[in-house]
């Protein structure tokens, strides 16, 4: 059985919603079961936004999880919130450009990705969500990057079409950065 539960978290505007939705589209287009659920509470205004994506080859029960198998944290408040919640042996992937105090928890994989810096190098700070998603795909192997690229072609909003190639490049850069094998937790 294949089952992943991911949390994406960051400031509003960092692309949490689109990055996680893209993964959900790709899972659907790969024929898998998937749920995507945002936190829609009042904390969305001005604070962190987060969503949970569950991907499975079976009918999905709970779309929310207490201990996600991986967390993608785009800012420091997200690391603070989710570091204790990651499932033992799970993954905490964090945006090292903004998270200056690295997570310290033993028993999980904490992987820094300088996503905002890489996005800036690629010419647009908004690409950080794709850098992080590329890294997540590389480490977890949940879906091939090619599948996500196809979904990107299908679902990138019309007004952002000019950013298609840049988005793909950001995905691949994220994957490259995450290629080094994980040290045991």
């Amino acid at each position: 059985m294949m089952h992943y539960d991911f949390v994406f978290s960051g400031f509003g505007g960092q692309g949490v919603l689109f990055g996680s939705q893209l993964l959900a589209y790709a899972a659907m287009e790969a024929g898998l079961h998937v749920t995507w659920i945002p936190s829609y509470g009042p904390e969305m205004r001005g604070g962190t936004a987060n969503c949970t994506v569950v991907i499975s080859d079976e009918e999905i029960g709970a779309p929310l999880v207490r201990h996600p198998s991986a967390v993608v944290a785009l800012n420091y408040p997200s690391v603070e919130k989710y570091e204790p919640q990651v499932a033992p042996g799970g993954l905490l992937l964090y945006n090292a450009s903004l998270v200056l105090r690295p997570p310290t928890r033993v028993g999980i994989h904490c992987v820094p990705i300088p996503a905002s810096d890489v996005a800036a190098e690629l010419g647009n700070a908004k690409l950080l969500n794709m850098v992080m998603l590329g890294a997540l795909l590389q480490i977890t192997g949940v879906l091939p990057i090619g599948t996500v690229e196809q979904s990107l072609e299908a679902h990138l909003p019309a007004r952002r079409r000019d950013m298609l190639e840049a988005n793909k490049l950001a995905l691949r850069r994220g994957a490259e950065l995450a290629q080094e094998p994980l040290v045991a937790a």
């Binding site: 939705q21 959900a24 749920t35 659920i37 829609y40 999905i60 929310l64």
Partner: peptide, 10 residues
């Protein structure tokens, strides 16, 4: 409920 109203699924 709000959870089903807000969540996305295929």
């Amino acid at each position: 409920d709000g959870m089903l109203g807000q969540m996305m699924e295929p």
